[in-house]
Design a protein around this nucleic acid. Structure first.
Lengths: 138, 138
DNA sequence: GATAGTGTAATAGAGTAATGGTACACTGCT
DNA sequence: AGCAGTGTACCATTACTCTATTACACTATC
């Protein structure tokens, strides 16, 4: 299992912490940071690593369990689902959400399809060596 | 001034209502739905149109005033700022936020720059006659 | 069996978002 | 002056998030 240090993350005050943990763990799974079947840190360990209350981590884990991404084994720990198709499903869902929100926002600002692509490419060139920072803080 | 009917909007339970009002009014300004100097509905009228409490609308208006997008005239109403450069400023800011958030999300999912553009273009073709719906409800 | 580590559940408190309601000050109009 | 419409400012209440704490049940290991 990954060392606890690897799980540190910054939180954005504007959104619920438990939801940010859900997103971060989902992304870690999609990026292959955690493998199917692997165990993730216990609620208590994770709450220490993230400097967050155990209840908050528990809520995040239960949310992930509800989404069939992890499962709990009483007295033992939480584990990533073995189903490999699940990863593709999660990844597709997150990509779809991200793209459709982006399209919706840009369209509501009056951008045409071509203009959306242009704006994206321009900003990608600008920020070649910049980090996309939308204000995440601990 | 636009008829009150035109202001109806659906809210996403996941985010504060006042913030969604701020975004919607900002978008309306950028899209030219409201002109510089024009008056926007009173707090009471807007709260009726949106079926939301007056305090919620008041908070949204104060937020927009803090951002120098509108200004209040006691006893008369709220008005859009006259400064035309302001609109460009607001538009640029919203575009920048939207694009950088999108880039950040896609990068965190392991997408390269080329893959980001591809995913965007694919989903743009798919949804040619679909509405981007990320779950907004009233 | 005893122990440590785990998931699970419950309670109480602080802070914020949002509602519902009331009151006051100001403006424009008659 | 009187009135309607407006911005502004409170208060109490409800709901949600997060924290702090405690307790209990289960598993693996010795």
């Amino acid at each position: 299992m990954l060392p606890l240090e690897e799980w540190r993350m910054g939180f954005d005050e504007r959104f619920p912490i438990y939801r940010q943990i859900v997103n971060e763990l989902s992304r870690s799974l999609v990026r292959g940071k955690v493998a199917p079947g692997e165990r993730i840190p216990s609620i208590r360990d994770m709450s220490l690593a993230l400097r967050v209350n155990t209840n908050t981590v528990q809520r995040a884990y239960q949310e992930l369990e509800r989404n069939s991404i992890i499962f709990s084994q009483r007295g033992t720990g939480y584990f990533v689902m073995e189903d490999t198709h699940m990863i593709d499903r999660v990844k597709s869902g997150m990509v779809r959400d991200s793209v459709s929100r982006f399209l919706q926002e840009m369209t509501s600002l009056g951008f045409s399809r071509d203009e959306i692509v242009s704006a994206l490419e321009i900003q990608m060139k600008e920020g070649t060596d910049n980090v996309a920072d939308d204000g995440a803080r601990s």
